[in-house]
Structure formats: structure tokens, C-alpha cells
Design a binder for these strands. Structure first.
Lengths: 310, 310
DNA sequence: TGTTAAATTTGAATTAAATTCATATATGAA
DNA sequence: TTCATATATGAATTTAATTCAAATTTAACA
């Protein structure tokens, strides 16, 4: 009766707190997940969640099954990796380049998990700034780029990771503080504080401001914390991933606003040459990134990818 | 893709060595199991078993998944018990009586497993010989009888355990050594060596010899080893569970024969008052017996019981 | 070297289970 | 009260698992 799929659902519910979001994460409808959980509750004749407007809260019984999920799922994944190893030698190397600045936030736990899963693979982070990271793949200087899809993906393959919302960050007393969302025009003549990368690589500029032909000033800073300080001291506004600014918003250091009518979302992929991306450990890097980020980053949405078959 | 049901199937295959027997054990057809395993192999693109006339042998990949099963299934069962505990206090006592002599062979590992699973339940074995063990239930002297179903099961409930074959045991040079199976007439004027219990409680007498009106002599011994010694030294023949005589047969100390045209099978149940048998820990005793015996006793067949819902 | 018995495999038909769709219901905030 | 945001429900549908009825495969044995 209890199946692994139930455990995965419980984990998704724990991560998102909401049935609807959890359903997205396991690629089911909200209704399907509701039926699934209900079936479990009926089978064991016990309530697993306290339902409320604000979402689901685990009861002790629900928590017990969640604990089981957290215990079992990693063991299962490790077994699946071992099956791959039994098929053939899986040693190799994996040089990762990050296209996105903020990705450094979660890369450390990802690399830790990866090293534990694939001790025989030599994994490295390619250091330094690169204006065209995808080019490093063809040049043989890197194996995987974590970032958006490049224009021309000749000879490259990608695995979908997740998407996240980029939100505008303002000082708490900014004139726009009462709007629920900022439109392109709201940025006119503002100072936009960004990482020091080309305009083409900054989503809000490429997708919002440039199409609307908005004039704005620009100022750069290397570190997220520096950008936040500049915003808080009213030197300008920024646009950053929702999960990177959470702490600052919670402490009323800055406020965050959606951008555009439906929000500005950015998608992340693991990109590499075809030869690299068929390797089980490269596919597993994508799976690990998805898992680690799903667990740690609030508000992200996993991109559909059928499933990553090692 | 991989589900707990697959792990249970793998465990059953490991225990029985044959797809057909494993299928019985998980209450599926042999075909269904074949499809199930094939689906796993296709999914992971790896061979899990070496098939042969003699049954299935695990490949390293199959073994890896079997290891996973052996790691996960106990954790799952423990979680299910914990769910019960969360519903209500489950302390109590459980006094077990054995109707069958040979059951002592496997009772120790069962009681160990039970104590681990239900530390708050006081479990005891009711000592001494009882000509009518079921009577102890109504008399309040015992909580569960492990044995066959009594004639009148007034106010009693039972949970099915398993059935096993009772085989005739002969000295290796016995005149009947070349028959593949013994019929009732073959016992005429032989000496039957049994445990010291009433004739009505001895299956071969009640079900085979008495109906055929065969005359035989009888001699008793307390211990299985004593019975085997008597058989080996040509003092008579015995009828014992197939799993209890394995060692002796393997060492050519005695030989074993099927009894009757389709074998003589005996069924075992856990029997108790209705109030007792609804308790989760009583139901779980039955589950534990089934599990432990399935794992350790060759040639038994689990009785259908839908499933034991704690 | 057939023959047979005891296995597993296969593919189509069937059955059962999971999922979706469309809608209802519940909850707390405004 | 109404609205926005959740979860629940039941019927229809889709998908997956299982059975049924052969077809193979394999090794032992005559």
C-alpha cells in the first residue's frame, strides 16, 4: 500500500508546505495528490496533515512518515547510482562553470552531495569570470555550464533544473513601496544595481527594460550583500532571485516586488556537450541540483524533465 | 519507477529461489512477477537475475537491489508500527501457547523480533503440555494459540500463518526407499514414532491412517532429535514438517517421502479471542511469524490473508 | 538425441489503480 | 459578505498492473 511515490509526495509537501505546489514538484495535479494522501490516511486510518488556508501542517503521524521518507529516499538514490556503477566504470572529471552569480549560494551543498555520490569523479569549479561561458564547453575548458540556455546550442545538450522568480528590491521607504508589482515604466530614471556582467546577461534588462525602451542608470557591485547595502541606503534598486533576498526582506532591511504583470522568471539548465551529458554522473549532477535546491530554496519551481534517467 | 512492491518481490524471490513460488508468496501470478521484474530490468537497462531451469540467481545488480530491500523493508514496518502507537497506547500482554511441537524451532527468533517491535508488550510463552490449548483462551490463561484451527471456534478469531508439508521419514535402507511417495497402506504394521500427544492431534493419523483404517504401532519421543535417532536405527518411521528434517536428509541420516498422492499439508494459524485479535500487536505477531518463517523455513507456503492490517 | 517436466517469457485481454477534469467546499482576510 | 487561496470530491479517463492462455527455454533422463 505505502509506496515510494507516496514518500516522494510527502517530501514535496514538506518542502513546499502546499498541496498545489507539491503537486507541481512531483508533476501531478493538485487533485491527484489530494487523492493520494487521502488514500494513505484512509489506509492507516490516521490523519497525516492539519489542513488550513495557509497550507498543510504535518501531524505527528505525518511527521513519522516524512522521517521515513527522509531516511529511505537517499538510500534508494544511492542504490540507483550503484546500479550504474555495476554497468561500467564511471570515473571521469566534471568541470563546472556558473553563468549566474547567485548560483554560488547553493553550489557548495550541491558539490558536497555530488562528491559523496560520485567519489570517483573529479569535480571542479572553473574559476574566474567568463563573458561567454558556453564557449568554454567547445573549447574543452569546461564540462558543464549552469545557467540559462544559450542562443545557439549547436552540439550542446541540456538538462532542465528549475526556474525562480527575479524580484525587484527597494529600500523600505521608496516611493513605489505601495505598489504590489513594478512595471517597466516604474524603473524609468532609477538606478539599477547589478552584478558586473554584460547587459545581455541581466534578465531584467534584456527581457523588461530594453524591450520597453526604458532609460535607467546602472551601477555594479560584486557581492549580493554589497548590492543590498546600496539598495538599503537608497542608492538604487536591484533585481535578484527571490530565494537570495529572503533574509533581507524578513528583517525589513529592504522590500521586494514582483516585476511585470506575471512576474519575471528565469530558467536554469545544466548544459554540456552531447558526449558529456549522456554520462550518468552528468545527469546525476542535474538531479542533485534539483533535489538540493528544491529542499533549500523557497519559491523555486522544478522544470519538467520527465525524470532524469541515469 | 522503483516501488516498495518491487522490493517485496525481490525479497520473495530471494527466499524461494523460484519465480513461481515467489509469486505465490506475494499473492500474484507467476506471469505478473515476470512482467514486474522485466519492467525493472528494462527501466534500469540491467539484468537482475540469471535465469535457469533451476530458478533465478541474482546478478550483482540484482543483489544490490535485494540489499536495498533488506535495508528498507524493516524500516518501513517499524514506521507502520509507530503509526499505530501514535493512535493509542499499545501496552498489554501476550501469552502464547504452541499447539505444535515443532513450532519451538522457530519461536525464538519470532519472539526476539516481536520484543524488538513491541517493547511495551509483555510477551510470554505458556509452558507445559495442554491437551486442549484453545480452551486456555476462554479460561483466560493464554492470549494466542499457534496451531491448527479448532473444531468449534466459538468467540475465537484467527489469522492465517502458513502451511507446510508433513513428510514421512524413513531409514535410508528401508524397504520403501524407492517409492517416490508413501500411501496409507504403506504404513500398515509399521511403527509410527510421534511426539507424545493424543492421536487426534497428529495429522498423519487423523487425516491419513485413521480414514484408511490402517493398523500401525506407535511409539513416542519428546524431542525431534530422539525421533530421528529412532528412525535412523530402524525402530520405525515418523512424519514431520519438511523444514524440520532438512538437515538430517541432507546428511543422508534419513530419507523423506511425500505422503499421499498430493502430499500431506498442515496449516498454522494464530488464534485468540476476538478482543485480543483486533489488537495491533496481536495482528503484528501473525505478520512477524509469517515474515520470519518465510525467511527461514524452506518449502512453506504463506496462507492468503489479504494482508495483515495493523 | 529425442522426450519430458519444470521453469520462465510473451502478448493480448482484462482488471484495477492512479490521474485528471470540472467543480464543490472550506478558510481566513479584508 | 465577499474574495482570494486553499483543499476535497466524484465521475470520466488514462495509465499501469495483472491475468490468461499459450509459447519458449532449459536441463535432466531415457
Amino acid at each position: 500500500m505505502l509506496e515510494i511515490r507516496h514518500l516522494k509526495s510527502l517530501k514535496a509537501i514538506a518542502e513546499t508546505g502546499k498541496l498545489g505546489l507539491a503537486a507541481e514538484r512531483v508533476f501531478l495535479t493538485q487533485s491527484a495528490l489530494s487523492h493520494q494522501i487521502r488514500a494513505l490516511e484512509t489506509h492507516y486510518n490516521i490523519v497525516l496533515f492539519k489542513r488550513s488556508y495557509a497550507g498543510l501542517r504535518f501531524t505527528p503521524a505525518g511527521q513519522r512518515l516524512l522521517d521515513l521518507a527522509n531516511e529511505l529516499l537517499p538510500l534508494i538514490e544511492q542504490s540507483e547510482r550503484d546500479l550504474i556503477r555495476l554497468k561500467s566504470d564511471q570515473s571521469g572529471e566534471l568541470r563546472i562553470v556558473l553563468e549566474c552569480h547567485t548560483c554560488f549560494d547553493w553550489l557548495t551543498p550541491v558539490m558536497d552531495a555530488f562528491r559523496r555520490a560520485w567519489p570517483e569523479v573529479e569535480v571542479d569549479l572553473v574559476a574566474g569570470f567568463h563573458s561567454d561561458p558556453w564557449h568554454l564547453l567547445h573549447a574543452g575548458k569546461a564540462d558543464v555550464v549552469i545557467g540559462g540556455l544559450p542562443e545557439k546550442i549547436k552540439d550542446l545538450q541540456h538538462l532542465a533544473l528549475f526556474k525562480f522568480e527575479i524580484m525587484a528590491v527597494l529600500p523600505p521607504d521608496h516611493a513605489l513601496r505601495n505598489k504590489s508589482r513594478l512595471l517597466a515604466a516604474d524603473f524609468a530614471n532609477e538606478t539599477l544595481i547589478t552584478y558586473p556582467v554584460p547587459e545581455a546577461r541581466i534578465d531584467i534588462i534584456r527581457q523588461v527594460l530594453q524591450p520597453a525602451n526604458i532609460h535607467f542608470n546602472r551601477r555594479t557591485a560584486e557581492l549580493t550583500i554589497a548590492i543590498m547595502q546600496l539598495v538599503a541606503s537608497r542608492r538604487g534598486i536591484a533585481a535578484l532571485p527571490s530565494w537570495g533576498i529572503q533574509n533581507y526582506v524578513e528583517h525589513d532591511y529592504v522590500i521586494a516586488k514582483h516585476i511585470g504583470t506575471s512576474g519575471l522568471w528565469s530558467e536554469l539548465y545544466a548544459i554540456g556537450t552531447s558526449e558529456m551529458m549522456v554520462r550518468p554522473y552528468a545527469k546525476d549532477l542535474a538531479r542533485i541540483i534539483r533535489d538540493v535546491c528544491a529542499e533549500n530554496l523557497k519559491g523555486i519551481k522544478l522544470l519538467e524533465s520527465k525524470q532524469i534517467n541515469l
